[in-house]
Design a protein around this nucleic acid. Structure first.
Lengths: 371, 371
DNA sequence: CATTGATATGAATCCTACG
DNA sequence: ACGTAGGATTCATATCAAT
């Protein structure tokens, strides 16, 4: 198991003013749980990096950025920050999100894969209120795309499956999210009353990203912090954050925005749904006396039964098996069955599935109760 | 204007049995209106995927045509066929569609842009009935992505804007299309009753692609023809097609499928909606005598007026202007106005907008009538 | 014939902690 | 790193049989 490093405590829940790549280089490797990135888009105009609305992210007056006038330069920029992102993501379990539109997302996705990132899903943010195409020259550009990936094929990721299902009326959440563009009260205004940031992401989008792929206490890093939606949603959901932003004005507004945000109760987050029950082995039930070594273990409601073997697994037809393997075998399936549901014991002349015994064991011996 | 070449007449509305890249190399450059391509997706599959009931999901397993050993090889394959696609697309006006999913679309999009293709839209095919994620490990993969691009930034493309708007209940069609997966009767079966092709595309998808981006009589080329949906929809909509398919069985079924397809009437295609009225210059109306050189041209219903200038444009305040530029100027707008709607002439003591005069001119002199 | 219910299936990078 | 056993897991729709 690769060692995870501690993220510098003094940086937790702060926004660093500075260049993205330079700042990332200062951070320890294998120290971050989730990265969410909303990088500038390559508009291929006069050597400036621009946001989707055409506003300048970094202009030609900065000598370094002047180089990014072509596709290749944008690709280099993308590769540079993604290499650092990969380095600082935890090696055992972590994931990265990047949002973009057709101007840049294909480049981002290609570089990701070249660097060995492994795509989990691509998510479509389908805007319920997109800007129409005024000229009638093409289809209304309705969506932006998020790529969700692990830094390596072998790296695990956190996914609050049940939480997302609960948030979606009890159905599996899909990769297409219908969310309106940030507007009204949600949109941060300057003191002069103008919108602060041209591409402020809606809270609901970041809420989904953070609640689905992290847990309480995790560290979420945003290399292009902007108006601070990532930090605000991280705080709301009880996560920690670290932001990087090179524009002092954005940073200022983001800090005060996040200060005003409150952390909500566990009852409304993933902590309510995605609780993993402790693993139990069949042996444990025998050792703890919940199942006797002599009793018959019945296959479903049939006449077939096995005995507890010397290894405290099942003994059937002269051989030793685990409950899942033998369950699968008798079920005429190539796959394992869920052994806890196909094997029964008799208690007071009724057949009780092993899963019920397991629940009793978890409650009485391990103090774990299902919600 | 670059010269377009004729596509070989004997190949029109046929399916060629052979390798995609080799076949494309035989075709003349600048000879095709639209390419729709559904290349292999390079999915990395290991083992079987089973449902909870033990049945095996039949995806594209054992599909030899989807096996590429490395990302680099897939990228080379993509580059090779796209180079040929670019060569045979008409230089003045044409476009290309490619469909894919997250396993390959970022590579395709990146190569497209590297080769100088210019993305018009990316379209999300949002499946109304996607395959769920059986194991609950990630979001349900709901969509596939189509990239629509011209072979070069300067190349024009055909877009039946009004048709798509009419097909979308009178609202601009967006880049997110809700379409079910091909199933039931639409799914082509073999004589043995199995599905013919693992990845048959729905007719509605190809219908949208073809009707939006081509006109009657155009040639649509499909380099990976498969079950022939492209050919069938091309025929239904009165377009020509050319397909390439390397599997004899698929080709056979596709040919008979297309034979059974009927071409529908003009009334139900783009020919009904997207008729472009001929462009008219203000001068033409003067030359043809629809406007006299001496008369006053009034700005809306105000007192302001201009005269026809010597150059047969407008003369106002000592300067010469086109009708749109001067219209915008007087409208206090930075943009040009639609000159045909803001300028009026007097006929029988009533002010008539120039657009009415233009309509009369189009009908009587050019034989063009609005539908 | 209408309605209900059982069954089949779709481009899928579809498990993971522990020893 | 790898094998093994424990454990968790699906939705919309079309077809067809049964009522």
């Amino acid at each position: 198991m690769p060692k995870n490093n501690a993220f510098p405590q003094e940086l937790v829940n702060t926004i660093h003013l500075g260049d993205t790549i330079e700042t990332l280089k200062q951070l320890p490797e294998s120290s971050v749980d989730v990265i969410f990135a909303d990088p500038p888009y390559n508009m291929q105009l006069e050597g400036n990096l621009k946001r989707t609305d055409g506003s300048v992210f970094q202009g030609v007056d900065n000598a370094e950025w002047d180089k990014f006038s072509t596709l290749e330069k944008y690709k280099k920029f993308t590769r540079d920050w993604l290499i650092e992102a990969k380095r600082i993501l935890k090696k055992d379990k972590s994931s990265l999100w990047v949002i973009g539109s057709f101007q840049n997302i294909y480049i981002v996705g290609d570089v990701l894969q070249e660097l060995g990132f492994w795509i989990i899903n691509d998510i479509i943010w389908s805007k319920t209120n997109p800007t129409p195409n005024f000229m009638g020259t093409k289809f209304t550009n309705k969506q932006e795309t998020l790529i969700w990936a692990t830094p390596d094929k072998k790296t695990k990721y956190h996914f609050n499956y049940k939480t997302m299902k609960a948030l979606n009326d009890g159905k599996q959440m899909t990769s297409v999210w219908e969310i309106p563009v940030a507007s009204g009260n949600e949109r941060i205004k300057t003191r002069e009353g103008d919108k602060l940031h041209p591409t402020q992401k809606p809270e609901k989008l970041l809420y989904n990203v953070i609640i689905s792929s992290s847990k309480r206490g995790d560290l979420i890093l945003d290399p292009f912090m902007g108006s601070g939606t990532t930090g605000a949603m991280a705080k709301r959901l009880g996560r920690n954050f670290f932001g990087i932003e090179q524009d002092e004005k954005y940073r200022e507004y983001a800090i005060s925005r996040i200060e005003n945000e409150k952390t909500i109760s566990d009852d409304f987050t993933d902590a309510k749904f995605d609780i993993k029950a402790p693993r139990v082995k069949f042996k444990e039930l025998v050792t703890a006396g919940y199942i006797s070594e002599e009793e018959k273990i019945f296959f479903k409601k049939t006449d077939k039964y096995a005995y507890v073997s010397a290894e405290k697994e099942l003994f059937y037809d002269g051989e030793h098996f685990g409950i899942s393997k033998l369950g699968g075998k008798l079920s005429d399936s190539e796959a394992n069955a869920n052994g806890w549901d196909v094997w029964f014991v008799e208690r007071e002349q009724k057949r009780i599935p092993l899963s019920v015994i397991r629940t009793e064991y978890r409650e009485k011996e391990l103090g774990f109760y299902e919600k």
